[in-house]
């Protein structure tokens, strides 16, 4: 039963593959070792797919211009923004953020801005780069 499918399949044998080889083509035998090797620079990782211009990545927070109006805290759906009473500023837990950007829209001082950075997962949610203004 030769069908159109078989013809397509044989053709696809030689065309470019759709799999995204990020971060490495084949899963390493030991993830932990591989992560260490990457950190030491001994293992190269394939670059991720490019993100569009208006991508919603990790937020930046402009602490200086913040006036402490608490509007962002009121609209944050995942309680990633916590108001610090003593300082009058907000603390941002990146690990809780859902990247909805309601804080970006509501902030009267435009303190928040999206970046293109998205490789932010880590084992420790309290890590230095995962809490902004700790």
């Amino acid at each position: 039963m030769p069908t159109q499918t078989i013809y397509t399949l044989i053709k696809q044998l030689f065309t470019e593959k759709a799999t995204n080889p990020f971060p490495v083509k084949y899963t390493p035998d030991n993830m932990h070792d591989a992560a260490e090797l990457i950190e030491e620079g001994k293992l190269e990782i394939n670059p991720p797919v490019e993100v569009p211009e208006d991508f919603r990545g990790k937020l930046t927070y402009d602490k200086e211009s913040c006036i402490g109006c608490k509007l962002c805290v009121r609209v944050c759906p995942s309680e990633a923004l916590v108001f610090k009473e003593d300082e009058g500023k907000v603390k941002h837990y990146v690990s809780r953020c859902t990247f909805c950007g309601q804080c970006v829209n509501i902030c009267p001082q435009s303190c928040f801005e999206f970046t293109q950075e998205f490789l932010i997962a880590g084992p420790d949610k309290e890590a230095e780069d995962l809490v902004i203004n700790p």
């Binding site: 759709a18 208006d54 909805c100 950007g101």
Partner: peptide, 18 residues
């Protein structure tokens, strides 16, 4: 993937668009 990319291009997010 094409339409997912387009949605990401328009909204900035791939799945939950907000």
């Amino acid at each position: 993937e094409e339409v997912m990319d387009l949605l990401e291009y328009i909204t900035g997010n791939r799945v939950n668009y907000s």
